[in-house]
Design a protein around this nucleic acid. Structure first.
Length: 558
RNA sequence: GCGCCUGUAGCUCAGCCGGAUAGAGCAGCGGACUUCUAAUCCGCAGGUCCGGGGUUCGAAUCCCUGCAGGCGCGCCA
């Protein structure tokens, strides 16, 4: 709807230029938006205001010229009027809104799909938790956000690959092995030393139990036993992570292992290429990369004095590997505690010669958990934290996912378990789901009276005239452009707000009928009932699609 | 000290590319169920958009600055 209006506006401008009524200037940045105040029509544009300076004429004058010459060929406009200080307010004809509704219902589950991405290949890397412990709340937030973003990008025509990067080549896996082995030994010798920075969570005891049941750890050299504990521990943790994510409705296309970078010689290959570009040098017996030339504070070490490569080195080669696989765009979802790492990563990629905007990093602020009015502090190292799995078991996948997406990723999130567990109005996920279930219930009621959805989605829509009915259609009309905005801004939380708004408009509409029978959807007037069923079907479709993109179920009964 | 993020109603937060009278939920107060699902709706009340400058026809939004809070500043991963 907005884009048809834009097309009309541009054509009108060109006409006015051709007729010499306006000077021939390039079109400035202007907006077409839905005004807050209903008196300002369905849409408003500031085009005359933005044109004023280049045209060297008062905005009101420009607005009048445009309004007088606007051609209403396809019966879109009811009215276009000039408003101070230089807006044009548009009112759309009711029939045009009816056509939108008809299209929503005709397209069904495909409504909102677009070709915005034109098949561009996008790699979204998210969660990427170290396989040294269970997923916690922060991972859950990243999982919910990444998964929904992927679903939306796919829906908008991008070719999306979801990837989980496994940090399994570094020191922390060794530490995992030492922690497990130590717990194993402590079962017989309580004073057996525990590694200083070891993982202290209870799950380490479970791992020790499980692994010692599979392998006779006592009958081999400690070094060997630690290696096996590390290897097996990593495998078990990874499996658990995968299961947790599956239960959370999140799947990945690729599980990319850091150790694979070494095994396949990808690290050496990447470093050689960077060296060829003259971006590496030796100093103090270490190997450095010149990131400072690309916006980083200082150069960074790639290979340490002791001959080991840094984590940064493998991360660079990992990202170059992504590039090599031919992605047009890469998106990383990281915890905000890694924000200092972003400039150096981007600098390294620039040093190699990748385009500045190829990589987008979404930083997620931390999640604070509240229960019984108190904050529950979490620390992975101390083994004191709430896992994603525990949370999901307590409050359910739908509620957890929804709450994780009710806030912008760059603000910290307070997750109040007591509040989310409540199955009432305090919890917005039920509010949206309830609207869906309600519509399903209406369809059941209608069917029981022999009234069903007409075969053609444009049947009798001229019966829809109530403000509340038109409001619903207007909200539905915004859905496609909302998804495109989300694809561009990478801000999926906006979808939860949109769905809440749509659900609210529906609940309001529904409640008209509780007071006044003639406003009910199912009524003795069959033609009217059918038109309203089409409207309800549109709402059900959009809510269903929206919830699907959020990875949340759309129940038929509640 | 430097960098990133945040600061909007009592609380938790939206506010899209700078638009016209700043929104929602919860909490508070008052109403609506022999009904198409009350997990709902309607009304009332609630604001120095952290402070101060600036840009603009127009600023919660952009720029500068101050204050407050969070996070990060390793040849760790």
């Amino acid at each position: 709807m907005k884009s048809s209006l834009d097309t009309l506006l541009k054509a009108t401008f060109d006409d006015c230029v051709e007729q010499g009524l306006l000077a021939e200037t390039p079109l400035p940045d202007y907006v077409i938006e839905v005004p807050n105040n209903p008196e300002h029509g369905h849409f408003a544009t500031n085009l005359p205001l933005t044109l004023a300076s280049v045209q060297r004429r008062p905005p009101l004058e420009i607005a009048s010229v445009i309004v007088e010459h606007i051609e209403n060929n396809d019966n879109l406009l009811e009215n276009a009027e000039v408003a101070a200080p230089g807006f044009i307010n548009f009112t759309i004809r009711r029939e045009a809104w009816h056509r939108v509704l008809s299209r929503v219902v005709a397209q069904g589950n495909a409504y909102g799909r677009s070709d915005l991405g034109r098949g561009q290949k996008v790699l979204v890397e998210f969660v990427s938790a170290n396989p040294t412990g269970p997923l916690h709340l922060g991972h859950g937030r990243g999982a919910a956000l990444g998964d929904t973003l992927c679903r939306i990008l796919s829906f908008c025509g991008y070719d999306v690959i979801r990837e989980f990067y496994i940090n399994d080549a570094g020191q922390q896996i060794r530490l995992l092995g030492e922690s497990i082995f130590s717990r194993f030994m402590q079962k017989h010798r309580q004073d057996y030393p525990f590694p200083e920075n070891g993982y202290r969570g209870d799950y380490i005891w479970d791992l020790a139990e499980k692994i010692s049941g599979e392998i006779d750890l006592a009958q081999m050299p400690h070094e060997k036993a630690i290696e096996l504990c590390a290897e097996r521990g990593k495998g078990i943790m990874l499996e658990e992570i995968r299961e947790d994510l599956t239960r959370f409705g999140v799947s990945f296309d690729v599980w990319f292992s850091e150790s694979e970078l070494f095994r396949k010689g990808l690290l050496d290959e990447a470093l050689k290429k960077i060296e060829d570009k003259g971006q590496l040098y030796e100093k103090d017996n270490a190997l450095w990369i010149k990131t400072s030339g690309f916006g980083d504070d200082k150069d960074r070490v790639i290979r340490k004095k002791d001959g080991h490569f840094t984590y940064f080195a493998s991360d660079i080669s990992y990202h170059l590997e992504k590039w090599k696989r031919g992605f047009d765009k890469a998106v990383n979802i990281w915890g905000a505690d890694h924000h200092g790492y972003v400039p150096r990563m981007k600098a390294a990629l620039s040093a190699y010669g990748l385009p500045e905007r190829w990589l987008s990093v979404i930083l997620i602020q931390l999640v604070k958990l509240w229960k019984g009015g108190q904050e529950i502090k979490m620390s992975k190292r101390a083994g004191d934290f709430v896992t994603l799995q525990e949370l999901v078991e307590e409050v359910g996948v739908d509620a957890v996912r929804f709450v994780f997406l009710t806030k912008n990723h760059d603000s910290t999130l307070d997750f109040d378990i007591d509040l989310v567990k409540k199955r009432d109005s305090e919890n917005p996920v039920y509010y949206v789901q309830y609207a869906h279930a309600r519509i399903c219930s209406i369809f059941r009621k209608a069917a029981s009276q022999g009234i069903t959805l007409p075969g053609r989605s444009d049947t009798g829509l001229d019966r829809l005239v109530l403000d509340e009915e038109m409001a619903l259609i207007r909200i539905m009309a915004e859905f496609p452009s909302l998804l495109e905005d989300i694809s561009r801004s990478l801000e999926p939380h906006r979808l939860t707000y949109y769905l809440t708004e749509l659900a609210a408009a529906f609940h309001r509409y529904f409640n008209l009928g509780t007071k006044t029978p003639e406003y009910r959807i199912v009524s003795p007037d069959k033609a009217l009932s059918q038109a309203r069923l089409i409207l309800a079907q549109g709402v059900r479709t959009v809510i269903g699609t929206g919830l699907g993109l959020l990875g949340i179920s759309a129940p038929e009964k509640m």
